[in-house]
Design a protein around this nucleic acid. Structure first.
Length: 578
DNA sequence: GCCGTTTTCGGCCCGACTGTTTTCAGTCG
């Protein structure tokens, strides 16, 4: 997958050009191209030059550079650019508050070429005297370097969202806010978060700011103004609060929700229509008359666009789709009829069938699939064939007792290290639904991993591949696997790919799920519940689906039970006839 | 480097906060 590599190269080229003091718009062009390639629903390797040029922000020259990289594995302009500045200089840009101009200045005046060198000079007070740098800046640079060394990595949404809700609650309790909302990447449900962005309305913004920067969980104050402040809380998370007038909440929310790329597109469109958008509203350019901004919808309406949901606002084609009237009708939590990946006490889950049924019913479901682990997964008390058949009898009995609810009998079957499956077909055919997934041999080669998954998909009884890339956000990288091939074979065989809603998995990710949709693959959104509370991680899975442009029809477990069973049998039949 | 209901050349989003600058540049989001 060359997309990520090319995105990284373009970003780095942007940084080098910035230090060189090149045309800012050219720099932005590289940045935009990098973002769009990173989020591209298809692999650049399979695109022709003309198709590359259809990507927003990719023109003649960048398309040629991409093509060059795909074909030769290197990019001449990049290699040349890299040779023009010392490699350590780019590291300086990671220091908060230190940008390209200062980096350049430090290099020119003091020949600084690494972070360690900069730290030494700052500690010895040898930066003061460089034009524009005094004591305060020197201190800020030292603080900045310390924070770089502590590391400020993006953190999983599942961890940050509860913290953000808690902060909002604390502000609400202590400060004179009228309305207060979470914006930024949390509102877009990005899988990992760097900053918590909050927007509020108040008649007394200064007071709100005072309260905010003095909250008990604040470790340091980065910025403290009358309408905007930033603090750092534990674990290096930055929290930004912006306060606006009551009638500007919509405009402020739109502005602070971003993404940056999306905002630039909207503001660019506005300019072409003689309008101006900022965080206070939407204005007519010629006389500065305010046309709206109380509601977020105003911004889109006044631009002649339908409302674009936050999950789509990544400048990945949503503006074009909105203009063409082709925005997807995104799936919602209410579309989900059941959960197809649930564990019980029989393997490594914590609950009985009755407890799971009650919990699923309480969440408005009409079915779930019980998919305990298979025998090969000893650590999870995987079921032997005998136990599986015993479980089948119990579930049959259980379903006899239930009304308006059905428990499907399935398995989460291990795809073994050698690529064979943990149960033979005679056993699988006894089940309502079969999930296959990988729990071992994570370090095998890309070819081996890919072929393990592909051969599982070709089995006539395997309906779903669970957590297809095996990643745990912030803990374990995805195993090496050729996802383009997995997605292609899923489309060819009718195998469903899972979006695992567990907040550290979110696997498939939005990029892959969107690609899967484009290739005609059906997805399932499952919680992989082991304890009952995990049923409530469904919104995380839904958010990935929405970020992937999925509609109700793209997702297997939006089907009512009879249609679901029909779909499964149909696909199995076609597979077995191949 | 991209792009076109104003353009194939000349534009390219908009504003808050900080530090050092006496009027604003740099950085960030």
């Amino acid at each position: 997958m060359k997309n990520q590599e090319i995105a990284r190269i373009f970003s780095e080229m942007a940084e080098i050009l910035e230090i060189k003091g090149d045309n800012p718009f050219k720099i932005r062009a590289y940045r935009r191209a990098a973002l769009n390639i990173e989020g591209l629903p298809r692999s650049v390797e399979e695109l022709s030059k003309d198709e590359l040029r259809e990507i927003p922000g990719i023109g003649e020259e960048l398309a040629a550079k991409i093509e060059e990289y795909v074909q030769t594995g290197s990019m001449h302009t990049y290699d040349k650019l890299k040779g023009e500045i010392p490699p350590g200089l780019l590291a300086l840009l990671a220091v908060p508050g230190l940008g390209p101009k200062t980096a350049r200045l430090l290099f020119d005046k003091l020949h600084v070429t690494s972070l360690d060198e900069l730290e030494r000079l700052a500690a010895e007070h040898r930066l003061s005297g460089v034009p524009g740098i005094q004591k305060k800046t020197e201190e800020n640079i030292l603080k900045g370097i310390a924070s770089v060394k502590r590391g400020r990595e993006r953190q999983p949404l599942g961890k940050v969202l509860p913290i953000a809700l808690d902060i909002v609650e604390q502000i609400r309790k202590r400060a004179p806010v009228d309305r207060i909302e979470i914006a930024g990447s949390i509102r877009r449900w990005k899988e990992t978060i760097k900053d918590i962005d909050i927007v509020a309305t108040s008649a007394n913004p200064e007071k709100v700011m005072e309260v905010f920067v003095s909250l008990p969980l604040v470790e340091s104050v980065v910025l403290h103004g009358p309408t905007r402040s930033s603090v750092v809380i534990r674990e290096g998370l930055q929290v930004d609060l912006r306060v606006v007038e009551r009638d500007a909440l919509g405009a402020a929310l739109a502005y602070l929700t971003g993404s940056k790329g999306h905002n630039i597109r909207l503001r660019d469109m506005a300019a072409k229509q003689g309008l101006k958008i900022n965080e206070y509203g939407i204005f007519r350019e010629k006389d500065d008359k305010r046309l709206g901004g109380e509601e977020e919808e105003d911004v889109y309406r006044l631009l002649g666009l339908p409302y674009i949901p936050p999950e789509l606002r990544e400048d990945l084609g949503e503006v074009e789709a909105a203009l063409a009237g082709k925005l997807p009708r995104l799936i919602t939590r209410e579309d989900i009829r059941g959960d197809l990946h649930v564990h019980s006490r029989w393997s490594d889950g914590h609950h009985t069938f009755d407890e799971l049924v009650a919990a699923a019913k309480a969440r408005g479901y009409t079915y779930f699939a019980l998919t305990d682990h298979s025998r090969g997964l000893g650590v999870a008390h995987g079921l032997t064939i005998e136990r599986l058949m015993e479980q089948k009898r119990e579930i049959t009995e259980l379903n006899r007792r239930l009304t308006g609810f059905t428990v499907l009998h399935g398995t989460e079957m291990d795809i073994r290290g050698d690529g064979t499956l943990d149960f033979p077909d005679e056993v699988l055919k006894e089940l309502d639904i079969v999930i296959a997934s990988i729990h071992s041999g994570f370090r095998q080669s890309k070819e081996q991993m890919t072929s393990r998954i592909v051969s599982a998909m070709r089995n006539p009884y395997v309906s779903i591949i669970a957590h297809p890339t095996g990643r745990l956000i912030g803990e374990r990288d995805a195993y090496e696997v050729e996802m383009d091939e997995v997605i292609r074979v899923a489309g060819e065989t009718g195998t469903v790919l899972e979006i695992n809603a567990y907040p550290l998995r979110l696997d498939l990710s939005d990029t892959y799920a969107r690609r899967a949709k484009e290739m005609g693959v059906t997805l399932a959104i499952n919680t992989d519940t082991h304890v009952i509370d995990q049923f409530d991680t469904m919104p995380y899975g839904i958010s990935i689906a929405r970020r992937s442009w999925l509609e109700k029809g793209d997702v297997l477990n939006t089907l009512e039970l009879p249609a679901l069973l029909h779909r499964i049998r149909q696909v199995n039949l076609v597979k077995s006839e191949r």
